[in-house]
């Protein structure tokens, strides 16, 4: 790990302005992904701003009937919150499908959104990677890419976003609240928060430099049967090959977001509209432009079958 200086910020504004003041600064909350990457010198911050004392660790009801989840709410606490379990079951389920008990106790809501891909070439500093070292090339294209993206990828990068939580937040139409170094706040819909790789796979989110996530808002409960179905190589503690977050209403309408297939949670209006016609119709829309590799083409039928299983369960 490279040497770094360390400070504890006392307010969100102070954290954001400290980040603008010190070159090479990074925020640290749970640290479960950042420290992992720092040990491998994939992340090499010169300064860490500890944001754990910012008081952003509560879940508050909103006047519109929704919930505001503080950026520092731990994954365990968000999954176990009685309101989330009752009204946003897909979010509880997605969180519980991710990582291990130890990691969920430490990992935060904001950090989960900002976690980096687990592409093995991103993790191997001996290999070219456009995300780690822009312009160096992509080792996954033509390499071992069974786990990688099948849709929305580019000639520069075929990495996936690893979060389960983000897939549920996308299905729920959650929004991300931030504060900038100049004190300005803004709200970013989950649909726009994560970027497709394009020519700049190192730019992963809509966040500006030094912008700090302060929370995530959940719209008023939408009801329906909420299911998160994750398919992975082990029964527990593994990243998704494919995951499906589905919210299905009694009349068969609803929403579907898919994880493990793209650089961001994958959801389309046209696919949601096709939901009453079944899994095949939905995945035909979602993956019309898919470009799988030879090794991960299995994700196309797997996504359809995983959604079919979720829809069958929703029918009861």
């Amino acid at each position: 790990m490279k040497s770094f200086t360390y400070e504890r910020a006392r307010s969100p504004g102070e954290a954001a302005s400290a980040s603008a003041r010190v070159q090479g600064a990074k925020f640290i909350a749970g640290g479960t992904n950042l420290l992992d990457l720092m040990k491998l010198q994939i992340e090499t911050p010169a300064h860490l701003i500890d944001v754990n004392d910012l008081g952003l660790d509560t879940i508050e009801p909103l006047p519109n009937g929704g919930l505001r989840v503080g950026a520092l709410v731990r994954n365990t606490d968000l999954a176990a919150d009685a309101r989330v379990r009752r009204d946003y079951g897909v979010l509880s389920r997605a969180l519980l499908a991710g990582a291990s008990g130890q990691l969920r106790n430490k990992a935060t809501t904001a950090g989960n959104l900002l976690q980096r891909t687990r592409c093995p070439y991103f993790y191997d500093t001996n290999q070219p990677c456009n995300k780690r070292q822009p312009g160096s090339g992509c080792s996954a294209i033509g390499g071992i890419n069974r786990q990688h993206a099948i849709v929305g990828s580019s000639d520069a990068c075929i990495a996936t976003h690893p979060s389960d939580m983000a897939v549920a937040l996308r299905a729920l139409d959650a929004e991300v609240e931030t504060v900038s170094a100049d004190g300005k706040t803004r709200t970013i819909p989950m649909a726009d928060f994560h970027k497709l790789p394009g020519d700049t796979p190192h730019v992963e989110t809509a966040l500006a430099p030094n912008e700090l996530i302060t929370g995530v808002t959940l719209p008023p409960p939408v009801g329906g049967t909420q299911i998160y179905r994750k398919v992975r190589d082990r029964a527990s503690y593994a990243f998704a090959l494919v995951s499906v977050a589905a919210i299905v209403q009694r009349d068969g309408s609803g929403r579907v977001a898919v994880g493990g297939v793209a650089h961001k949670p994958w959801r389309m209006d046209a696919a949601d509209a096709a939901l009453p016609r079944g899994a095949k119709a939905v995945t035909a829309q979602l993956f019309a432009d898919a470009k799988p590799t030879q090794q991960n083409a299995f994700k196309l039928p797997l996504a359809e079958r995983t959604l079919a299983a979720a829809l069958a369960k929703a029918k009861g």
């Binding site: 640290i28 479960t32 420290l35 106790n105």
Partner: peptide
């Protein structure tokens, strides 16, 4: 593993189990 994958470093901090390899002592 020193990367949060094996759990050998699990300790209980403020009543919660965590991977002690993936957190800084100064925190």
């Amino acid at each position: 593993c020193d990367h949060g994958q094996c759990g050998a470093c699990t300790v209980i901090v403020e009543g919660r189990r965590i991977n002690s390899c993936l957190t800084l002592a100064v925190m």
